[in-house]
Amino acid sequence: MSVFLARRLVALFLTLLGASLAVFLILEVLPGDPATVMLGIGAQEDSLAALRAQLGLDRPAWQRYLVWIWGWFQGDLGNSYAYDEPVIKIILERLRVSLPLALMAITLSTAIGLPLGVLAAARRNSLTDVSVMGFVQVGVAIPNFWFAILMILFFSVFLKVMPAGGFAGWDAGVWPAIKSLILPAVALALPQAAILARVTRSSVLEVMREDYVRTARAKGLTFAAALWRHAVRNALIPVVTIMGLQFSFLLAGTIIIENVFYLPGLGRLIFQAIAQRDVIVVKDVVVLLAGAVVLVNFIVDMSYALLDPRLRGGGHGQ
């Protein structure tokens, strides 16, 4: 187990290193000068140079990279050019929106996708199955931002029961804050729920053909009991893999969805930071997101061991 942990930690570290290098290089290669953006097009050359020096932009690239990485180890992510605030403070602020949003979305997609998939597999070829598969086809074909717009049309413009966008803020109370995250979370969750339902269905169908499910039936378990006690847990192994992958799609989805709903989250932060050439924010957020993706995959690997005793190892009999 500790070897396993160590190997995963090394992988985590390497991925973060790779991600930091990649984003640094991309920002290095692509055009766009933060100083010009900050001072405007008509700025004086000497004031531009002064600002560059102040920001450390006049130093060679490798030095800037090391300074940046060193900052991470000291918990100092630098200062945002655009907001003139510590990046860490901005990120923590934005996480108060994005984290609950992501959690709501993943809970929702799991709560919809898993049961639908199991149900469709259990009632294979029935009307239920056909309906679930129809939902899947439509769910993966709908752009989530359009689904978001449709929901705004229906719930905000037509029924007027939901805010059309914006974030009430946690200071306004828990319910108003949650309420402004409901439609975004549903929009993020829908395509993921569809994918999850499809994967769960085919995985359960596969497992249901296994001999041990037949054994369970021969012991007198009802179809439902054999499905629930013997098929579902085995079927979850590939499903968990997909859920891990979905996390990164979810992060990507927040960029668009937070824009649709004008939510001050990480996704919108990075979108604006790119537009404003707030390079330091872009770099930090990308590395943070990459880290989150790797961390989630780490958790997924751990949950395999929970689901499958063969991966836990242990002594052999006799």
Binding site: A19, V23, I26, L245, I255
Partner: peptide, 20 residues
């Protein structure tokens, strides 16, 4: 593997936003 782990839309947003 690395490319898979990286949110594709995020990078697409970066590329298009920065390259114009």
């Amino acid at each position: 593997d690395f490319a898979f782990a990286f949110p594709a839309v995020l990078s697409a947003v970066m590329i298009t936003a920065l390259a114009g």
